[in-house]
Amino acid sequence: MNVILVAVIALGLLGLILAAVLYLIAKKFAVEEDPRIAQVAEVLPQANCGGCGYPGCQGFAEACVKASAEGSLDGRACPVGGKAVMDKVSEILGLASTDAEQKVAVVRCQGSCAHRPRTAEYVGVKNCHVANATSGGETGCFFGCLGLGECVAACSFGALHMNPETGLPEVDESKCTACGQCVKACPRKIIELRPMGKKGRRMSVLCVNKEKGAVARKACDIACIGCGKCQKVCEFEAITLENNLAYIDPAKCRLCRKCEDACPQHSIVAMNFPPRKPKAEEPAKPAEPEVKKAPEAAAPVEAPAPEPVPVAPVKEAAPKQEAQS
């Protein structure tokens, strides 16, 4: 009995002393934390999915607070909570709500095998950056998708996949959160985040080739050749032409689809419009460019050639956009 008693007392005492030590140390070495981090974390879904690109909701909260010092939450968004959550976060951090239009990744290349003949074979690491640094790629187009799928690997939402037939990445718009990972991942800057547009309807120039017309056409039969026809036909000055490449400013585009008809190369593609027959023109809706980028959507990084976004494209007139590469 005595032995038991001694043991209990000794262990109990030991526990008490250690608890006290722990407490004191915790006090002494407590890490000062911005209280707003906890507040922000509170409104987050606490799903810890990592979809925002940060290690869990706590990590995201820290990143938001840090970003608020610079006055903007651009580039940070919670894919699970969506705009509602981000509005709350902005409120906590005293920032204007980042109300922006939903964006989506657009792969600006349509150079599938059919359109863009292969002229060489690349042997080397199957990595877009490495291939891009090595040479112009397997086709005559030195601007287009390389098809090695780095964008697909970069997407945390499974919104991108390579189409084995075209050798191009395709965006699943329902999954894309416009997080911009794919844009960063593409060494050729083929992927652009563009405003989703009403009902997903939008116009894009799906080409980034800056060569002169003849050279571009030789490399790819649906390359933008910089002819400027779209620019002439656009009534809203939404199309600019630079470096032999047209670009459609989504802010100015009214979705009239005239440029699509004007484009001799079919480089301008209208997406998500109902089949052409019914009406040539949809009610114009100004797309707003910009603003918040929700953390979703990844687009492929460097992709091989052609074909950009596959969302049931129907043609309409749209302004072209210029690709940068």
Partner: peptide, 12 residues
């Protein structure tokens, strides 16, 4: 492909 990667790393 050691050199492919190292070259890429050197560039970056």
């Amino acid at each position: 492909p050691l050199l492919d990667w190292i070259r890429q790393g050197k560039g970056t």
